[in-house]
Simulated assay, not measured.
Amino acid sequence: MIINKMKIIIQLWFQLLLWVSIVAAIAYFAICLFLFVQQPRFIFFPSSVIEKTPEFFNIPYEEVWLPVPVDSGKVERMHGWWLKSNQPDAKVLLYLHGNGINIGANLAHANRFHQLGFSVLLIDYRGYGRSEGDFPNEMRVYQDAFTAWNYLVKQQQIPPSQIVIYGHSLGGAIGIDLALKHPEAAGLIVESSFTSIRDLISYRNLFQIFPVDLILNQRFESIQKVPHLKVPVLFIHGTVDSTVPSFMSQKLYAAAPEPKTLILVPGAEHNNTAVVANMEYLQWIESFVHQIYARILFNTRQ
């Protein structure tokens, strides 16, 4: 009698364990599916609220609306600001911001470039700020950067050799992709950016119980792209960056071909390299621009 009861209890325990295992497996699969589908929401953090416009810095500007065709056959409009320099034959900077907020949060930094004499185009990827469209993803932001480039070249009729691409953080990865597609650009500035999303996940020890390599579809694999760059590139990174470690810029620099420059800013975090470096930051940008245009002039004379 006791033995039969023990057998029944053991069978019930096995059944319970089996059901728990099945439920756990279903939950695990569901979480994997959720991470696969909702992945962009762990990467992009857009805001539709623009707190500052160029008027805050007394910068004359034009509102820019760029049409982006989508698979449905419709057209989504991307919003931006064109900060035209009052200097004749000014160089142009295409400003690609990071994964958070919108162009309004990037005006102070864009103003630094404008004060250096650049005409600056700031764009909000679709889903950010006033730009139309669904939630952003990797392919969409690449397309948005490509659209902004075409606006400068085709509508503003700016020679590609007059355009410097600038990208901060995630914008650096977007800038690397754009520069790879347009080797005729004057140069590329990559600030506080990363080697890949996979490397960031590993560095932060995130999602390690899941098959990250199978789930990951937003990769931004800059480390695979920089060896093929054909433009001069300047890497800038703060040494105490707690968002993206500075060794990632060092890896990007090591993988990139010449001409290239790496500047590590002591004591600077993810968003304040220009503030910490102060006037030196502007000198680095001016020096880089001087080098790339001296190179263009030299090649033109050959």
Rank of each mutant, 00 (worst) to 15 (best):
D89V: 09
A90M: 02
K91D: 12
V92N: 11
L93I: 04
L93Q: 05
L94I: 03
Y95F: 13
Y95M: 01
Y95T: 07
H97P: 09
G98V: 03
G100D: 08
G100F: 07
N102I: 00
N102K: 00
I103M: 10
I103S: 10
I103R: 09
I103Q: 08
G104C: 04
G104M: 02
A105H: 12
N106M: 13
A108S: 15
A108Y: 13
A108W: 11
H109S: 13
H109T: 13
A110G: 11
A110E: 03
R112I: 15
F113R: 06
L116C: 08
L116Y: 04
G117W: 00
G117N: 08
F118V: 07
S119Y: 01
V120N: 02
D124P: 11
Y125C: 05
Y125K: 03
R126F: 01
Y128V: 09
Y128N: 04
Y128M: 05
G129L: 00
G133S: 03
F135E: 00
N137R: 10
N137P: 07
E138Q: 14
R140T: 14
R140E: 15
R140N: 14
Y142F: 15
Y142P: 11
Q143F: 10
Q143M: 13
A145E: 02
F146G: 13
F146C: 11
F146D: 13
T147L: 02
A148Q: 02
W149E: 08
N150T: 13
Y151E: 03
V153L: 04
Q155G: 09
Q156W: 02
Q157N: 14
P159N: 11
S161K: 14
Q162V: 12
Q162T: 14
Y166H: 07
Y166E: 00
G167I: 01
G171R: 00
G172D: 00
A173Y: 02
I174T: 10
I176T: 14
L178Y: 06
A179E: 00
L180W: 10
H182G: 11
P183N: 09
P183Y: 03
E184D: 13
E184F: 06
A186T: 05
A186V: 08
L188G: 09
I189V: 12
V190A: 15
S192Q: 03
S192N: 09
S193N: 01
S193V: 03
S193I: 03
F194I: 07
T195C: 05
S196L: 01
S196E: 04
R198E: 15
D199Y: 01
L200D: 06
L200S: 10
I201T: 07
Y203T: 11
R204L: 12
F207T: 09
F210Y: 11
V212E: 06
L214H: 13
N217G: 12
N217I: 07
Q218H: 04
R219L: 01
E221Y: 11
E221W: 05
I223T: 08
I223R: 05
P227H: 02
H228K: 14
H228G: 10
